[in-house]
């Protein structure tokens, strides 16, 4: 049991939890700023980004793909803003125009280019492949202290940990301006805070989390984690500090419960194969949100 768990289940579980938390953290601010769907838009435009990066470099390597994804996310934000301002288009619709068109372009490029034999397809982009992130060199719990075995950890794990750390540290460093500009933008501006820059910073943080998580777990978890845990947390409390803490708890719960249910749930009811972990994590986060909508203390204003 020990060996099997450490090698096959522990890495995806940890990656899932890190991805969930990295997305939930900026999700809190997006939710309060009524920008919850930015996460949705970003996770769609990541696809053309990695496809273009692949076409340029010919490599399925993490760094060019993440750069491509980040560039696409940035391009999308700029385009949305441009269409909104130039055409005087309502923000939701501007977003809808940009992310659907970019996603369509990504799909088309992918279908047109020769990616056979390369691990790159639309399904992978949508629901990732959490289950495949296994740690072959692990022999048991002792491997956690064995540097040689640790070096063979799936690279997604340290990458995701780094992304979460960056998001967490930036959030902690800029906590006061973030809080002020989220709750009272006018007041924050009168204090001389660069509210436009702060807003952009939040979107950049969200994009960073989305791009890092996307590679490991697919965009469906990313969208769910941007919204569901923060939304459930919002119904639990009126204080931002508590809301962020609750959202991290919900994100962790979703990832752990979802992963376990996807891997072992079907076995319990007698089915032979497991189901998509990414889909199950999103489902569990939705069930948690549903419970919060029904019973949380602050569910109505």
């Amino acid at each position: 049991m020990g060996f099997e768990f450490v090698a096959l289940s522990l890495p995806p579980l940890v990656i899932g939890v890190l991805a969930a938390m990295a997305c939930a953290l900026p999700g809190n601010f997006l939710l309060l700023r009524r920008q919850a769907l930015i996460g949705d838009a970003i996770s769609h435009v990541v696809l053309p980004g990695i496809v273009v990066a692949f076409l340029i470099t010919g490599l399925v390597a993490a760094v060019p793909m993440m750069l491509g994804a980040a560039a696409a996310a940035l391009a999308a934000v700029v385009l949305i803003e441009a269409i909104r301002r130039l055409g005087n288009v309502e923000p939701g619709a501007a977003m809808g125009v940009v992310f659907t068109a970019m996603f369509a372009g990504g799909v088309l490029l992918l279908e047109q280019s020769d990616t056979s034999g390369v691990h790159l397809d639309v399904e992978h982009a949508l629901y990732g492949n959490l289950e495949s992130l296994i740690w072959l060199d692990a022999t048991g719990w002792a491997s956690l202290t064995d540097p040689q075995a640790l070096a063979a950890l799936p690279p997604e794990l340290p990458r995701m940990a780094l992304a979460f750390l960056v998001v967490a540290i930036v959030t902690a460093l800029f906590w006061r301006p973030l809080k002020l500009s989220t709750f009272d933008e006018g007041f924050a501006r009168s204090l001389g805070l660069p509210t436009g820059l702060i807003g952009l910073g939040i979107v950049v943080m969200a994009a960073l989390a989305a791009v890092a998580a996307f590679d490991a777990v697919g965009s469906i978890i990313v969208i769910a984690m941007f919204i569901c845990p923060p939304a459930a947390a919002r119904l639990m409390t009126n204080r931002l500090e508590h809301q962020v803490a609750w959202s991290l708890v919900f994100a962790t719960l979703s990832a752990v419960l979802g992963y376990v249910l996807a891997g072992y749930g079907p076995l319990w009811i007698g089915a032979a194969t497991s189901v998509s972990a990414a889909g199950m994590i999103a489902t569990v986060s939705g069930l948690l949100l549903a419970a919060a909508c029904l019973w949380a203390p602050h569910r109505t204003a």
């Binding site: 949508l126 889909g279 199950m280 999103a282 939705g286």
Partner: peptide, 15 residues
């Protein structure tokens, strides 16, 4: 609400 419904329903659909 839109984001929650779309991601959760889609996730469950993938399952």
């Amino acid at each position: 609400a839109i984001g929650a419904v779309l991601s959760v329903f889609f996730g469950f659909g993938i399952v």
